[in-house]
Write a protein that binds this DNA or RNA. Sequence first.
DNA 1: TCTATTTCTGATTAGAAAGTCAGAAATCCT
DNA 2: AGGATTTCTGACTTTCTAATCAGAAATAGA
Lengths: 215, 215
Amino acid sequence: MLEAVAAPPTRKGPQTAGRIREAALELFSRLGFERVTMGEIAAAAGVSQATLHYHFDDKACLWRAAMLQLSAVIAEEERLLEAMADAPPEVQLRMAMKLFLRISWKHPALGRIVALEGMAGGERLAWLDAHLTGPRNRRLAEIAQAAIDSGALKPFPAPMLVITLQAASAGVINLAPMMRVSFGMDPSAPEARQAHEQLILDAILGGLLTHPTTP
Amino acid sequence: MLEAVAAPPTRKGPQTAGRIREAALELFSRLGFERVTMGEIAAAAGVSQATLHYHFDDKACLWRAAMLQLSAVIAEEERLLEAMADAPPEVQLRMAMKLFLRISWKHPALGRIVALEGMAGGERLAWLDAHLTGPRNRRLAEIAQAAIDSGALKPFPAPMLVITLQAASAGVINLAPMMRVSFGMDPSAPEARQAHEQLILDAILGGLLTHPTTP
DNA sequence: TCTATTTCTGATTAGAAAGTCAGAAATCCT
DNA sequence: AGGATTTCTGACTTTCTAATCAGAAATAGA
């Protein structure tokens, strides 16, 4: 069988397929596609290695299934952005940024995946762009461009703004192990998370708006 | 033989060892430790696979040698930071930031390595912290802390400032493939590089200083 | 209960990659 | 030139991993 998503709870297959996808997402995002073995995923999901190949044709297929699951969750959480399509650009921008930050913290796997595959290039990145990151990036870029056109935001290239925001938000979360090693500090502690969010907002709203607002 | 650095040019060994280190650095930084095979490195350096094991005991040893080479270059380029240890904190901070950005652009391998290993954790990260990234991070944090103590910089945790700067500068460079796929834009083009640098400086100097200065 | 279908597993296979080694080729020294 | 040393290579071994498959266990439906 292959990548089924919804199913009657009486059947047991989809349930274990879900456990496998979760384990795969965690491992893939933390270590990258080839650092993870099918055996590790199987162990993490509590099934045999052959079971992985029963539910998913091959390793690449399992990777895509895990990403699709993440994609669905995130798309759902970003739904509310569409509801404010006619708010002033500056308001939309601020809202989008906060949502972006919140999602980065809530789904650390996303940022890790983006860092890993967005750096390596290749067909997995192409797939990600089509199914997960591309639409997000371009929607955010549109909002930034509108803010620039309205004169609220300094005229930097919108893609550069988007990627920088991406890098600065997810990057800090990704580099948690490094922060621990270099500074003995845990960035996922609530107060650190708070400081990080405030830092990004201050930097962008204070430094990049034409009429700075530091709330 | 093992990790020799300087040598008489008449001997041929160190020269090929250098070529191997360069090829290794490029590949390791682009793909990560385990995505790269010894065969690929050998091919890129134009030698046989067995030659790699003649010059370096094993793969991990080659990885460290490549990192050490990078480390030496960077340490040299950051030497001039020590010369201004008694300048006012704000001046030092601005200088350090610009140097940091310049080095990120000049040695893209550094940022990729940091992203890859800083995210994965493990013994390679520990080694990096001891030999390359740790000293840099802590020196930059000291400068940031001095700027905070002097009242020039808003009182965010210095480690958070450092890691965010790291993530925002290197991150954009790392994500070049993603920018190409998502926006068809090449961030390594001179004008993009310029915009990126200005963006970071504006964000930090405009948004995080207590008395903003936007030059 | 009994049969068919779904779900899962142990055993196995094929292939890739790191690392070893004996010896060839190149270079140095006298 | 000629022996000694450094440098390099092809062929091999070992280990690890993805993928396959026949069949066991569990579940559903009559």
